[in-house]
Simulated scan of single mutants.
Amino acid sequence: MTNNSGVRDLYDRRFYGADEEAGFVEEGASTDTPQTRHPAYKLAFRDDDFLLQPELRPVRFQLELLKTEMLLDQAGVGSTLVMYGSARIPSPDQVEALEEVAKGQSEDEAKVTKRLIEKAKYYQEAYNLARLATEKAIIEDGERQFVVTTGGGPSIMEAGNRGASDAGGESIGLNIVLPHEQAPNTYVTPYLSFQFHYFALRKMHFLLRAKAVAVFPGGFGTFDEFFELLTLIQTGKMKPMPILLFGKDFWNRVIDFEALAEEGTISAKDIDLITWCETADEAWAAISKFYDL
């Protein structure tokens, strides 16, 4: 796979040595007076209290957009294969433990646990698809194509990053700050592991480089990302691309796409934006056909 140690070195120089190279020094380094100790004297870009004011929100938006954009450019990422899905679906090696848990649950709780267990196959298919795409190692104009990108968390996201890692490649994780403690899964490539405060900016980076999106069973977050993607393509804000929807039984149970068309709130042809998949091979075949790979 591509060696990106040079990119990592460039990151270190640009983001950790920039002040010294540009001649900036800590304020008050040579003179300690009431004036230099006052917060008003701080350089604006070093003043967290200033930067975190509500009036500076547009600046923070720009920073969240630019940092990831610049680093992905430097990493030579031309396009991505985005993977959406639940943070709750177990991996196959967690199934046995969950089956034991279900034995001690109420009937209703056990039913939910068993439904999650049934979806463990999608962890495996997410892993398989990520590994398959990474092994292809497609390069165009010197840039890597179909670089696996996930939300950086557990479950389906972990499966995607894990598949890429096991294939000897790199992958992107776009984490989000949440009220409860969370961290990137251990398979995300460290220098491609990003954290966002704003969902809007995170969602932009999911799609700015996307050439295909695989959507696995999920909850509110997955629905949000999936339907926004459909809307952007439906309205012409994005070019068409393969939208690979895994788990037809799940999706048809929770959403009646045909009913939406029958009610007239979408066109029948809008349903054709979706490519149904059950396996990684089916998904990659659809990508290959769409782009004539």
Rank of each mutant, 00 (worst) to 15 (best):
D49A: 10
F50P: 00
E55G: 07
R57H: 11
R57P: 00
R57D: 09
P58K: 09
R60N: 12
F61H: 13
Q62I: 07
Q62Y: 10
L63G: 02
E64F: 03
L65E: 13
L65S: 05
L66P: 02
T68I: 08
E69L: 10
Q74N: 14
G78M: 13
S79P: 12
T80C: 15
L81F: 12
L81M: 11
M83Q: 14
Y84H: 11
Y84P: 02
Y84D: 05
S86H: 10
S86C: 09
S86P: 14
A87K: 08
A87E: 07
R88E: 12
I89F: 09
S91K: 13
D93W: 10
D93L: 08
Q94V: 03
Q94I: 03
E96N: 04
E96K: 13
A97I: 09
A97Y: 11
A97P: 04
A97V: 13
A97E: 15
L98S: 00
L98V: 00
E100R: 14
V101I: 12
A102I: 01
A102P: 03
A102G: 02
K103P: 00
K103E: 10
K103L: 08
G104W: 05
G104N: 14
G104T: 11
Q105C: 13
Q105T: 01
S106F: 02
E107F: 03
E109N: 08
E109D: 15
E109I: 04
A110L: 04
A110D: 00
